[in-house]
Simulated assay, not measured.
Amino acid sequence: MGSSHEAGEGGKRGTEGSGTMEPSDWAIKCFGAHAGQLTRAVPQRLRNAHVRALAGHAASRLKRNAKYGQILAEAALEELAEEAESLGGEVRLLGGRPYAIIADHALFPYRYANRKVPLQKARFRSGVSERRKRLYNAHGPDGWSAGTLFDVEGEQLETEAYLRLREAFEELGSQTRLVSVFFTSDTQDGIHQIHWGEARLEIDRTFQWERHEELPPAVEA
């Protein structure tokens, strides 16, 4: 499993529910003048997505929570895209889904558990799509080493397939870098925890974090 580098400059910033969170040096490096607003807005946007997903789950009248997770994944992308637009950034479509692009950084939200568990335990589910593998290998920190020609199931890749995984998506822009926004939530307690940073996808579907920071979840006003 990939290891994690703890956040510097104090780790978690601000206090839960406060509007006074200050951006880290890392956030400023990524997002420039928009870092402060994003640091405050990401938790609220994820809360908005949770509320939308909860409403959809209730309307479905299903006992299982599958609908909640499906809607939450889409709503999180949409909420972050709206935030990007409000900041003068861009929204680019990849596979028909909107991705927030701010200062050449794309935000990728991912709910990695339905309970509060350490970020180090985050991993993609089995059968992870080629698009996600390529997203991390082409736009994330340096992916699998040049000599590693294995996919996430451990099977050897042909050179052509391997190189395709490292080819940047034109839709996002060849220079666009990936910022992962990982969180946990459930229908009862909402968003438990949020981490954002730069993560490298490992061959076992876990992540090694070059840098990550914890953001306090937004609280109901």
Rank of each mutant, 00 (worst) to 15 (best):
M1S: 12
G8K: 09
G10N: 02
R13F: 14
G14S: 00
G14T: 02
T20C: 03
M21N: 15
E22P: 02
P23C: 09
P23Y: 07
A27W: 06
I28K: 01
C30P: 00
G32Y: 13
A41D: 06
A41R: 12
V42Y: 04
P43H: 05
L46T: 04
L46D: 00
V51C: 07
L54P: 07
A66T: 06
K67C: 03
K67L: 01
G69F: 01
L72Y: 08
A73L: 07
E74F: 03
L77G: 02
E78V: 09
E78N: 09
A81C: 03
E85I: 12
R92A: 05
G96H: 03
G96L: 02
I102D: 00
A103P: 03
P118A: 00
P118L: 05
P118R: 13
V128F: 03
R134Y: 00
G143Y: 04
G143K: 00
W144A: 12
S145W: 06
G147F: 07
F150Q: 11
V152E: 05
E155F: 13
E160Q: 15
A161M: 13
Y162F: 14
R166L: 00
A168Y: 06
F169P: 08
E171V: 07
L172W: 07
R177V: 09
R177S: 15
V179Q: 10
F182H: 08
I191W: 06
I194E: 10
H195Q: 04
H195G: 05
H195C: 09
G197D: 00
G197C: 01
A199R: 02
L201R: 01
L201A: 01
R205P: 05
T206K: 01
Q208E: 14
R211S: 11
E214Q: 04
V219I: 11
E220Y: 07
A221E: 14
